[in-house]
Amino acid sequence: MVERMITPLLTLLLGCAEEAPVYGVSFGGERLPVVDMHLHQGEWNLIPESTRRFLASRFPAPLGLIAESTAEGSLNAEGVLEQLDEAGVIQGALFAVYAPRTVGVATNEYVAEQVLVDPERLFGLGSLRLDDWNNNAEAQLADLAATLEKPGFIGIKLAHAHQHVRLDDPRFDALWSLAAATGKPVYLHTGSSPFPNTAQDAAYTDPAYFEPIIAAYPDAQFILGHLGYDFINKEVGALDTCVELAARYENVWLEPSALGSAGSDPTGANLLTAYSAMKGAGVLDRVVYGSDGPQSPGFVAEYLERSLAAMEGAGYTAEEARAVLSLNFAAVFGVEPAPL
């Protein structure tokens, strides 16, 4: 009832006029399609209380007072698609998440439903619980394997710091083998995290701890999310480690999401450093664009703008930007290149 009254008022105040979306961005004199590989959705009541408070406090007041309705308006597929339309992003990938201590749970089943809202534009990355692996590994692996068979599922999402699992944990051979056998890349959160209860020690955040697994599974593709960014101190963190790993291992991909947001990198200097480092290392054929949206209204579009500015600042050519914004996504996940 309250939401029914508030939504029209918000719409009126925020001026959300309906316009036909225009896909793609202009860069270097060319029109380029954009795919956002890092998007979240889920249900507010599957986020732990401490994180709900954290998120609510970061919404512009008074939207934090109605955090649940504010969040759920943008955390379902329809809300995500609205943000993609606003940003001109043609396709996006939704993450399942099993991190009950920190960012909460977005189940594989939920993601599967959301992907079906627009299967031409939405993909899914499945995930699995790691918190009772010694007793529950087989069931979790079976569920993940079944999920990866579902329409639209193109990869696996893990977040060691959020899931409280060391990056060098030796118990997950079967998981890496599954990724290699199915050809589904594994996305890994790297770096610290601002969320309550995150495991912030280096063993959980520093991708250097993951190198033995990268080396042991050359047929599995690993995407190092956030480039090891230090979200606590707003510093580049393990950027050099990530870039060096990508330079040394052909099965390492890089994804510069979230680190360049207005909150995490107010001046944009760190995102520029990151894009410059990736270009300097000659690994732009393995950089995949993502935002980590939707976070807040307008975030997906804003993050894309900041990323384009960083690429421009780092001297990217239109072809390099095209690779980062869409072609590398198609390459790593084995899908058709995105249309404009």
Binding site: W133, H164, R166, D169, P170
Partner: peptide, 11 residues
């Protein structure tokens, strides 16, 4: 050696 709490958890 070198195991985190999660790896030592037996239920």
């Amino acid at each position: 050696p070198c195991l985190g709490a999660e790896a030592l958890w037996d239920g």
